[in-house]
Design a protein around this nucleic acid. Structure first.
Lengths: 112, 112
DNA sequence: AACTAACATCGTAATAATACGATATAACGA
DNA sequence: TCGTTATATCGTATTATTACGATGTTAGTT
């Protein structure tokens, strides 16, 4: 793409955008939802669950991990992933910090 | 990109991903934050505020509008944008529906 | 050691997103 | 009407993302 002009924006704006990008694919949402239910899973679970190739799942997992949403622990031969609890809550707070800033703007909410 | 296999995922997963994509650029976060403060703005406000070209701002505004996050009203010669209140709250609920599903997973939060 | 199972990484083709100049379009005022 | 102001849209070069086969890597098994 054209290069995003990161320097024009605040640290918070860039951070929120990076986090949102991690959520911005249905496969990654599906992975997160699976983990919210199952607490833990390995790559091959998700290959069966989602029907994407192993390499593709691995790539999505890495992106979620890079964003800090997941952590991975070696479990014998396989890699066990789970949601990173502290970061998850921080992300929640960051988004809600934005969501909650909306203000009532008129009797019928006619802002503009 | 390789084509995203939308049909593999649920409606909610695809919707969340589309919304997250709308948030996944610092310029769009900046636009939303500006609107949360100012309630209303026009294209040229943002050109001055953000330092991106007029065409670029217009493109970002369209994406935010397509995602349902903004609404626009004609105001004489210019276009007045504001946050779409109902959709904004629905988006908030959708994300929190996900954020809040995290469960305590152990004495030290060692999930995996 | 040889084999297997489970992943990660590489390479790459296909496709999407970003930025912006150039060019429409539309409303208002003189 | 003509010019001005404010946006939208088009075209396009550049860069990023997605998916997956092929190949590497590592831990356990026989």
């Amino acid at each position: 793409m054209g290069v995003t002009k990161t320097d024009l924006f605040t640290k918070e704006q860039n951070e929120l955008a990076i986090l949102a990008k991690a959520f911005a694919h249905p496969a990654r949402i599906a992975i997160l939802q699976h983990l919210l239910k199952a607490n833990t899973c390995i790559n091959s679970d998700l290959v069966n669950e989602l029907g994407l190739a192993q390499a593709t799942i691995s790539q999505h997992l890495r992106e979620l991990k890079n964003a800090g949403l997941l952590q991975g622990n070696i479990e014998g031969v396989s890699m066990s992933y789970c949601i990173h609890p502290e970061n998850w809550n921080r992300v929640k707070d960051l988004f809600n910090g934005m969501f909650d800033k909306i203000q009532h703007c008129g009797p019928k909410d006619e802002c503009c």
